[in-house]
Amino acid sequence: MTGDATPLDRRVNLTSVPPRGYTTIVITNVDQPITEVRDIHNGSIPVTTQTVREQNASLTATTLNETHARVQLTDARTGQPLSNRAVWLSGAAQGRVTTNANGTVVVERRDLYVTASFTGATNVSENVYYGPAQTRVAFQLEPFNIYQLLTSLAGALVSVAAFLVFFVPFAYMRRGTG
């Protein structure tokens, strides 16, 4: 074995590249402005800052029927709806929904409980950050219905009887003529 490194293919490029994705980081309770952020390689990351006030968001859920619930996202202080905001769902048909102009969405359940979560968002035009909120709605268990069970069993018995009365004689006659 040699101590030399294996040469890289000429198509391999090990130079740095600009990031392909950007994200917003919310830093709260800072005594002085943040002027610089560095990555894990001590490279400088461009920073823009904005001072915002934090307000609580309110997330409420109400059942509409056995399969659907309405989830509403509002400003907890003013009661104004928060429209066009992402709400994450657990136990529902969809994993993520966006609120309408009234701050509401209608969701279909997949489980007995549906949990809706708002992770927080900044309203840049009003210099407001809405903090995270979560709610859970429970659907009623369907009670055992003995009448429905008996009706299903009676229907099955009628089907078997109809098969015996109508199909078996014709099958027997057909077998005898062949």
Rank of each mutant, 00 (worst) to 15 (best):
D31A: 08
T67I: 13
P18N: 12
V30L: 08
Y22F: 10
T24R: 04
Y22D: 08
N42K: 11
Q32C: 11
V17N: 11
Q32M: 09
N56I: 07
L64S: 03
S44D: 15
I40A: 15
L64M: 06
N56S: 14
L64W: 03
G21P: 06
T67Q: 10
V30S: 13
H41E: 13
R38M: 08
V26L: 03
P19C: 01
T48N: 11
A69Y: 00
R38S: 13
T24D: 11
G21H: 14
T49P: 01
T62D: 08
T62F: 09
I25L: 15
G21D: 07
R20E: 10
A57K: 00
V17P: 02
R53F: 13
Q50S: 07
I40C: 12
L59T: 02
R53C: 10
A61S: 05
Y22G: 03
T62L: 08
Q50T: 06
S58F: 02
T67S: 13
E66S: 09
I45L: 10
L64I: 10
S58T: 05
R38E: 10
V47W: 04
A57N: 01
G43V: 10
T23M: 14
T24A: 03
T67N: 07
R38D: 06
N29E: 14
V30R: 07
V52T: 02
N65W: 02
T49D: 02
L64D: 05
Q32K: 09
S16T: 10
T49H: 04
I27C: 06
V47C: 04
N65H: 04
